[in-house]
């Protein structure tokens, strides 16, 4: 199944509005998906007998920078039976206020492996995943303040009395 076939399959199932754009500049073409429907799209791609994207190779949280004010998530799907790869991207604008994290639907109900991936994106980039069963920090200590891989992150001076820099 080609990239265009997958696109057609998704628009037939969910309508034109589900795909908000395409990117051809990366290592492989990517589909930009409506953030609110990413979990449904993943479920369809996983269960459809023509695609069987049964493996989430990677999930990445991205801070697109202070100027653009966008946060995104990239999903790298693999179909083991058909040897296919597919990249999905979602992104949203956010005011970078740590009280209102950018929020995307969790795909843990579709891919169990997304559990820890989403926790990592939450821990380091500060992306909230609605419907995640256990969204807490995974690498940093529980009482860490801030999200270190954000572009505007400022290293604190001390952590528990130990000087950082």
């Amino acid at each position: 199944m080609s990239f265009d076939d997958i696109k057609l399959l998704l628009t037939n199932k969910f309508g034109e509005s589900v795909i908000t754009g395409e990117e051809y500049t990366g290592m492989q073409p990517a589909l930009l998906i409506d953030p609110d429907r990413i979990a449904e799209v993943c479920l369809e791609l996983r269960d459809n007998p023509k695609t069987y994207f049964d493996f989430l190779s990677c999930l990445t949280g991205i801070d697109y920078g202070i100027d653009s004010g966008r946060f995104g998530v990239v999903y790298n799907l693999s179909s083991i039976p058909y040897h296919l790869q597919l990249t999905l991207k979602v992104s949203k604008e956010n005011n970078r206020n740590e009280e209102e994290l950018p929020s995307f639907p969790s795909v843990t109900s579709v891919y169990r492996t997304a559990d820890w991936h989403e926790r990592e994106a939450f821990d380091l980039v500060g992306i909230f995943f609605e419907g995640h069963p256990d969204l807490r920090r995974i690498l940093l200590p529980d009482d860490w303040e801030g999200y270190p891989l954000r572009k505007d992150y400022k290293t604190a001076e001390y952590y528990k009395g130990i000087k950082i820099d």
Partner: peptide
């Protein structure tokens, strides 16, 4: 290295 102690002698 926001996460690394710059020398264990700080601890």
């Amino acid at each position: 290295g926001y996460h690394v102690v710059k020398g264990v002698d700080r601890v």
